[in-house]
Design a protein around this nucleic acid. Structure first.
Length: 676
DNA sequence: TAGTGTGTTCTTTTT
DNA sequence: GAACACACTA
């Protein structure tokens, strides 16, 4: 990065003032432009704490902070660098007096909110219809993101209808739980800024310069949030790439980029097209792949690195040989001296990673899985978190429900229903209702005493946290008291997975260790940040091969990239052609799938393999696959083509066969049916 | 009430 | 072919 800024980058960094939109092609050095811009603002006398840089992921925020520190030193810590959601949470926390949820709010993640919706569906007596709660939640979230009121929600299907009925109940429930979902973390601050003059003025005073990364991923709510936060000064510096807009399903509006000047009159635009990442042959393929896309800002990336291998399309006969080819090729590359962390396997959906994980484990190659179920969403971690959450936030009925009978302590469904009925009748939270179980109708003594112990456990934990004891100590003693270790080990299914689960708990201890020991309020906000994946669990930044979904790979780069599953139905996803009424728009946007493909291609610096398989495992059997339609848009002379039908990895089949044999043996031993 | 067995449904991406 | 939900039995 010792290169001087190119003219376009320079124009952006030295922009005199007013709203600016930077169309930054993949690998065009946008992070550098942002950090340089901040550096310049500081050098021109702007106090660091009046500069706000907003990203979408904690990873991006961390990287930006690190780079900035490199440039300006310790003063970088004073710049507000955070994700949209973390900034929103911070504003809510600081302006708690004006928020209904008050300072006692708790952040509900996707799993939590899904639980809320499921409960509402139960209440609406619709659960039997086997409704997909996720589809309802998606509609609610979509409405929130687009700032659509209940009355104005579109109703064109049964699902829409249910969503309309569920929406007000959802708001009501969240309010009762004192919970904010991810959308609220944007919406609530937006409302505060709009409606409360005092708050508006305070933040306009504070946020003098706003820099937004990945602007193409902003939703309407986020755009308005940026607008409101910037105020009349409109010092907004937004960087985005319409070609990399891949979060439409989450409410992102490319329109925010395309109609930027509408929202920020007088805005200027700068385009960055020089790519500093990839070799030209890779860019040729990427440019060709994205070309058919309808684009507001057509770009043709170019590189100084003219030399390089053409990307390779490898057609494997099965998905097993796909794994084999990738493993062999990556091993060779490592023997040639390539670092593990310079190698990535990318895929459209997380399920595709499994065989690679297995193969890497078998080969003893360390790997890092990006995305997938987050660490904090692991069941065992959530269980322990729920105990802590309940302790600091007694009205968290969802947490209560999760742990009141985990590990099993004799409070089954019937008992739970009795507690619930009682609490509803009295308008109490579940925990409050449990405090004197004698009052609960029909609750038998056994369950009652058990409940009493549970209440004591939680209250003891609460008292200790209140008294300023470290979260780690409290967490550990809860784990001991409930016999978490024994329970995890007993639950299996295999000893290996149980050990891994317990390992997750031990990793979680490291997170707890970092939490402040200053009483309930601090503990609450530390726990709230867990949902935002705030804390960095990435201590061991070792040398690891990267496995990532295409979504998770945005912003990253690798010398060697294997884009697996370049088959039709994988990318683009089959739901492009199979409209299913349960989805928001009914179907997936093929244009977004193309951009996703493009994002994958542009991750590669030196060598790119596009992998596909003629048949893939599908519900047991083998399904024949066709090449991705996107490959047809790439002129054949731009890439090399190979066929591969190597044997599957020994170990994998071995293991599978052994497991199968073991299962059959077990079945036999248990007597009864003869195996065919 | 808890644990086991049987049937059913899957596979989109994530702050 | 696995994970999950549900029903059934001890």
């Amino acid at each position: 990065m010792a290169f001087p800024l190119n003219p376009a980058q320079k124009a952006a960094v030295e922009h005199p003032g007013g709203p600016l939109l930077i169309i930054a092609g993949a690998g065009s050095g946008k992070t550098r432009v942002i950090t340089q811009r901040i550096t310049r603002l500081i050098e021109h006398g702007n106090p660091a704490n009046t500069i706000f840089a907003v990203t979408f992921t904690n990873k991006a925020a961390a990287e930006m902070a690190e780079r900035l520190e490199h440039q300006v030193g310790k003063i970088a810590h004073e710049v507000w660098i955070s994700t949209f959601h973390a900034l929103g949470a911070e504003i809510v926390r600081r302006e708690a007096k004006h928020v209904a949820a008050g300072e006692k709010f708790i952040v509900y993640d996707a799993a939590d909110t899904l639980g809320v919706v499921k409960e509402i569906l139960r209440d609406l007596k619709l659960a039997n219809k086997s409704l997909d709660a996720g589809a309802i939640l998606a509609r609610i979230s979509h409405a929130k993101n687009a700032l659509i009121d209940v009355e104005k929600m579109p109703v064109t299907s049964d699902y829409d209808e249910v969503a309309v009925r569920a929406y007000p109940k959802y708001i009501q429930t969240m309010k009762r739980l004192n919970a904010l979902d991810f959308d609220d973390l944007i919406l609530v601050p937006l409302r505060l800024l709009r409606e409360v003059k005092e708050i508006r003025e305070r933040w306009h005073q504070q946020a003098r310069h706003l820099l937004v990364d990945e602007f193409q991923d902003t939703s309407i709510a986020q755009l308005l949030f940026v607008q409101s936060l910037a105020g009349p000064r409109k010092e907004v510096f937004c960087v985005g790439d319409d070609d990399q807009s891949i979060y439409g399903w989450r409410g992102a509006e490319v329109k925010n980029v395309i109609e930027f000047a509408k929202y920020f009159p007088g805005a200027r635009t700068v385009a960055l097209e020089q790519n500093y990442r990839s070799r030209q042959p890779i860019l040729d393929v990427a440019n060709a792949a994205i070309a058919p896309s309808e684009r507001a800002y057509p770009k043709k990336l170019f590189s100084d690195k003219k030399q390089g291998d053409k990307p390779v399309l490898v057609e494997c006969d099965t998905h097993e040989s796909e794994v084999r080819f990738v493993m062999d090729t990556m091993n060779q590359a490592m023997r040639d001296g390539l670092k593990r962390s310079d190698i990535a396997v990318l895929y459209r959906s997380n399920g595709l990673a499994k065989p690679f994980e297995e193969a890497l484990r078998l080969a003893n190659i360390p790997y890092k899985l990006i995305g997938g179920t987050s660490f904090y969403e692991r069941r065992e971690v959530k269980d322990l978190t729920a105990y802590l959450r309940l302790a600091v936030h007694l009205q968290d009925d969802l947490a209560f429900r999760r742990v009141v009978n985990y590990p099993t302590r004799g409070i089954g469904d019937t008992s739970f229903e009795r507690i619930e009925r009682h609490s509803r009748a009295r308008g109490l939270h579940l925990f409050e209702a449990s405090r004197n179980w004698h009052a609960i109708k029909d609750l038998d003594d056994r369950a009652g005493r058990s409940l009493e112990n549970f209440v004591k456990l939680i209250e003891a934990a609460r008292a200790r946290i209140e008294g300023g004891e470290p979260m780690l100590d409290v967490g550990k003693s809860i784990a001991t008291e409930i016999g978490l270790y024994a329970d995890i080990m007993a639950a299996g299914p295999t000893e290996a997975t149980a050990t891994k689960r317990w390992g997750n708990i031990e990793d979680f201890y490291k997170t707890l260790e970092k939490m402040p020991a200053k009483g309930l309020k601090e503990a609450r906000s530390a726990l709230a940040k867990l949902s935002l994946r705030f804390s960095e669990e990435e201590e061991e930044e070792g040398q690891k091969v990267i496995l990532s979904s295409l979504h998770g790979s945005k912003g990253l780069e690798f010398s060697l990239v294997f884009l697996i599953g370049c088959d039709d139905g994988i990318i683009p996803h089959s739901r492009v052609d199979n409209p299913k009424a349960t989805d928001i728009q009914g179907t997936l946007d093929p244009a977004e799938e193309r951009r996703l493909f493009y994002v994958g291609l542009t991750r590669a610096k030196d060598k790119l393999y596009m992998m596909r398989a003629k048949t893939r495992a599908y519900r047991g059997g083998a399904k024949p696959m066709m090449a991705s339609r996107f490959l047809r848009d790439i002129p054949p002379d731009m890439y090399e083509r190979r066929s591969y039908s190597g044997p599957p990895i020994m170990g994998t089949t071995d293991m599978a066969a052994k497991a199968k044999a073991a299962r059959e043996m077990l079945a036999k031993l248990k007597g009864g049916g003869a195996a065919p």
